[in-house]
Design a binder for these strands. Sequence first.
DNA 1: CGCGCGATTGAGTAATTTCAAATCTAGTGG
DNA 2: CCACTAGATTTGAAATTACTCAATCGCGCG
Lengths: 187, 187
Amino acid sequence: MIQELKRHIEEIITLTDDEFSSISSYFFLQKFKKGEFLIRQGTNVPYTYFVISGLLKLISTDESGKEHILSFAMEDWWETDYLAFYTKTKAKMSLQCLEDSDILCISLENYHNLCSAYPLMEHFFLQKATSGHIASQQRILSLLSSDAKERYEGLLKRYPSLIQRVPKTLLAAYLGVSRETLSRLSS
Amino acid sequence: MIQELKRHIEEIITLTDDEFSSISSYFFLQKFKKGEFLIRQGTNVPYTYFVISGLLKLISTDESGKEHILSFAMEDWWETDYLAFYTKTKAKMSLQCLEDSDILCISLENYHNLCSAYPLMEHFFLQKATSGHIASQQRILSLLSSDAKERYEGLLKRYPSLIQRVPKTLLAAYLGVSRETLSRLSS
DNA sequence: CGCGCGATTGAGTAATTTCAAATCTAGTGG
DNA sequence: CCACTAGATTTGAAATTACTCAATCGCGCG
């Protein structure tokens, strides 16, 4: 199980078995059932999560009760409400399981300690943060420049498995259109 | 001039004068006039830029010739087409001066060397990448959940100086609405 | 004064939303 | 095997919103 993390980290840096076994001790494993919340809007965010298996959605619910999806976190994704996590403030987002999921959790203290103890891990997280930033920028660009149909096609191209795994209502909430509009744009 | 960089870095980490003077040698200063391009869509992106003074826009021009603004880079901002920069591919965006600007430039090689030589700088860049990622996520959320008026008010609140410095046409291109719509929503 | 740029306004058109109803599908229990 | 139900998807129609295109306005500067 924890080997998923090793494989993931070693896509970027190389570690000895001893190093990895020490690194893995900064995390703990937790299993969540479909529908369970890892983070609830308005509460503290003690952990950053790494998805070993399963699927999560990071959402924000607005005043009118409408749910907006910031991201789908699939296998090998890191996710949390980063702002709340790093600043120890209350979550502005919720993180919820769309499938039964195996999740590794790391606290902010352990994250800092891990980075201090293993500069390579700091390097690893820098790469992750950078690629996350790039991905977000691409998403902003697609929201600014593409219509819903193009965004939908782009999403299916990037994550073809998603359409099997989540209802279209959620894809609509990710794309920023109503589910009715999404339904109509196949034509 | 270079002292702006020192002040900026020392908001996050502390450096001796010797360290900083060595670090600063990884950068070089360049002055750009209003209207000049630091990056042109379709070309290589040899540098990441740090804005000492002035104002830049990071834009993507679509097939129909419409310009979308990914960000305004003001004093103390790091900006480049990160994807093209890190992967040594051709820029999908342009970076252009909206005012005469003083800019520090660092190449990818120097960036890597700097991080290797000074782990503290890697830590610094991790913080920057993280906060950039958080900011992008906030922007995505506002595109998904707020209408143009709310986004406009939010932008003015976060960057009150912008309205003095750039024409509203550009604010519209940042918010993702036509300039006519932006003009009408004061009512 | 008149030019040029940016901002505003008007009118018609296109796209999206909302609300409601109908349809479809997978899973359950009889 | 079939009927039933809950959730998901689709469709319809009216209302809203934003867009485009064109014309006008306002202002600073030569």
